[in-house]
Every structure is written in C-alpha cells, then in structure tokens.
C-alpha cells in the first residue's frame, strides 16, 4: 500500500487513508452475513419438525396464564440509567482523546511543555464538574435501587 507521507508541524506521519478500514468493512459484511444466514438457514431448513399448536405459541410464563400485555409500564429508574449513561459516556468521550494526547510520547512535545500545566488544570476542572454531577445524581437518589 503506497502511503504518501504528510508533513505536520511535529514531523512526518503517514497520510490517512481509508484502506486501513477496508478489512473492517469486509469483516463487518462477513459477520452480518453470518448472523443473517444462520437465522435464515435455521428458518428455512426443511428437515425439522414444525408442529405449532395454539398453546405452544403462547407467551411462556412458567406455565401460568399470561395476565395482561407484556407492553407494560416499568420503573422510571431504567430511563434514569439511560440518561445517566448518556452523560457519563460522553464524559468519557472527552477523556479518551485527552488520555491519548496528554502524556503520549509521539506528537509535538513543545506544545506539551508550553500547555501541559494548563491542560492539567483544565482536566482537573473537568473531573471536578464530573464529580459534582455525580454527587448531584447520588444525592438526588438516582442510585437508590429497590
């Protein structure tokens, strides 16, 4: 794979090209095909018993008559988890690029010497807000389970 290098302020690095992702694409196609074909195969395979009865096709609830629909109301806690996850996961999203860049050996070291302290303070502030949000959620009783 010929890769034209790119001159950056830090030095030379290989140019970005999508080629690195082709294997992922192929693999993704294979995986999806695998899943679908497995389902399709078992669905279409002719030599297997198929004897549906009315009772066999009822929802299975350990041998009891199902009462009411399964589309039922459930605890709002689950929504809270979803919201919390969104917030915290995005928090992580910000930490990852920083984690790679902050103390890594590659890249522009002069930048790090100049701005290292600022970045350190900033990430501390960031984590502090994170902690505040976490404490808020805790105090609001989001983490109380029943």
């Amino acid at each position: 794979m010929p890769v034209t290098p790119v001159q950056t302020p830090g030095g030379i690095e290989p140019a970005f090209d999508l080629v690195a992702y082709y294997p992922v694409l192929i693999y993704a196609a294979v995986c999806i095909l695998f899943g679908l074909s497995a389902v399709a195969a078992t669905h279409l395979f002719p030599f297997k018993p198929r004897k549906p009865t009315k009772i066999k096709q009822m929802p299975y609830e350990s041998g009891m008559d199902p009462i009411g629909s399964a589309r039922m109301q459930f605890d709002v806690k689950f929504y809270l988890i979803a919201i919390l996850f969104l917030v915290f996961d995005v928090e992580l999203l910000f930490l990852y690029p920083w984690a790679v860049i902050a103390f890594g050996e590659g890249g522009d070291q002069t930048w790090r010497t100049v701005f290292g302290t600022i970045v350190f303070v900033e990430i501390m502030v960031f984590l502090a807000t994170f902690v505040i949000a976490y404490a808020y959620a805790w105090k609001k009783g989001v983490f109380q389970w029943r």
Binding site: P9, D108, T110, W111, V114, F115, I118
Partner: peptide, 12 residues
Amino acid sequence: MTDPLLKQTLTG
C-alpha cells in the same frame, strides 16, 4: 508552536 502570542491568547 511556541508562539508567545498564541500562548498569551490561549492562557488569557
């Protein structure tokens, strides 16, 4: 990238 102006700008 150690432009003092830039540093002043970003820290200020």
